[in-house]
Amino acid sequence: MALPLPPGLTPTEVAFLCEMEMVTVIPRQKLESLNLLGGPTQPLRPPHRTPLPLWLALLLKRQRRANILPPPWLLPSSLERILKQETDVKPQTFSPPPPHPYLIRSSPSHTDTISPPFLPSSTANAPSDYLPYHWLELGEILLEACSDDLQEPGRVRTLLRDLREVRMAKMRGSTKDLEGGGVSSLMGVGAMEVSEGRGFIVGVMDGLRKLGSSREAARREKEDDEGIGGAGEDDEEEDEEMGFE
């Protein structure tokens, strides 16, 4: 406990990372292209829609130079469908993350490993009905900064809270019923949820690992003992191979 901060990212840090997500804005004023570290932004020409990083969009929104177009998944209808998926259709698993926008081919390419926030998962042409990696924090930030740009902000707020509760309950429950000591798949879980659930899940896993450590050690020993008869020759061969290298 030497470090003052727990391992992993704090919610504030996650929200900071989330501000790199691209969102779509509708500018009200002209703005020339800016040379940012992540590359130049597109010049703003009202009323053409333009993708901008969230932090810049929030700045312009605060100065009333632009409006933010909410991503399609943040519409009440889409959130309702996701909530239905979470509670009724598949109450055991988390709703899936959005599909990878670049085609995954058999030959590996550099686009395979691109992950949020470098994927345009929250622009106006992002797929609806999928919660992207930064859904919770993006939703909260947009609700606060530009609730006037959202459709039915009150409903969106309620739906986001419901979704969060349903998914947190799933996350907490995920450690309860598994035999081996692992958690069930966390596919589709967002960054903020990981940050919130980390303390608990890591704690439970740590405890289970410690309690089971002696048994595990005994099992390993047994395996080693059983393996001695046949493994002896293999070891020698391996040693020889190592020697030739």
């Binding site: 727990p6 704090t10 504030t12 940050s195 919130e196 659930g197 980390r198 303390g199 608990f200 704690g203």
Partner: peptide, 8 residues
């Protein structure tokens, strides 16, 4: 830990 993460 649970309480702290929830509080944060």
């Amino acid at each position: 830990r649970c309480h702290d993460s929830g509080k944060a």
